[in-house]
């Protein structure tokens, strides 16, 4: 059994990180600077990795840091540089009809909140769940979920070839 004060600490950690993530996500979609948006996205992704740790998913958290913060963000920054977006403020990052997003997002959020409150209410996460080991995850991937793994390998191959073909100068 985990001590009550540890649970309190977990809760504080969760809300602190969640607040940072939500703020970062808002900044990603509202900032007028592409590079700033990319940096705010790093904050969100790092926060997500922290939440994974709270959810007892170490391996996924490490992968998140390696793949997302390590590789994907570098790709984004390269993309930004190569397309010579203005490093400074750019007032033309939004659509003419940007406000169309507000009702859609609000409607979606309202729906989700209603559904989640109705479905889960005050249900507690188990406090004594064992940490999922990397071995268990690999047993899953190379056991019952081998077929999606193959499909995914194929997707990655196709994406590699596709990216090369698209970005090649000829």
């Amino acid at each position: 059994m985990i001590a009550a004060d540890l649970l309190v600490a977990q809760n504080i950690g969760f809300y602190l990180i969640a607040a940072i993530m939500v703020f970062g996500a808002f900044s990603v979609v509202t900032t007028r600077n592409v590079v700033h948006a990319a940096l705010w996205l790093v904050v969100v992704l790092a926060g997500a990795a922290a939440q994974y740790i709270l959810l007892a998913a170490e391996f996924v958290a490490v992968t998140q840091v390696l793949v997302y913060i390590g590789a994907v963000m570098v790709l984004f920054l390269f993309g930004t540089m190569l397309t010579r977006a203005r490093i400074g403020t750019d007032s033309e990052l939004n659509n003419k009809n940007w406000f169309m997003g507000i009702p859609v997002a609000v409607l979606l959020l309202a729906t989700l909140i209603i559904a989640l409150n109705d479905g889960f209410g005050d249900e507690q996460l188990p406090t004594d769940a064992p940490v999922v080991t990397t071995q268990q995850v690999s047993d899953q991937i190379f056991g019952p979920y081998l077929l999606p793994f193959w499909a995914l390998s194929f997707v990655l191959l196709a994406a590699t070839i596709g990216a090369i073909v698209l970005a090649r100068r000829d």
Binding site: M21, A25, V29, V34, A85, D90, L93, W98, G101, L108
Partner: peptide, 14 residues
Amino acid sequence: LFCIGVYGVIARKN
């Protein structure tokens, strides 16, 4: 986060 993402997909031009 999902809804913020949805807003971003709709609102952003870049």
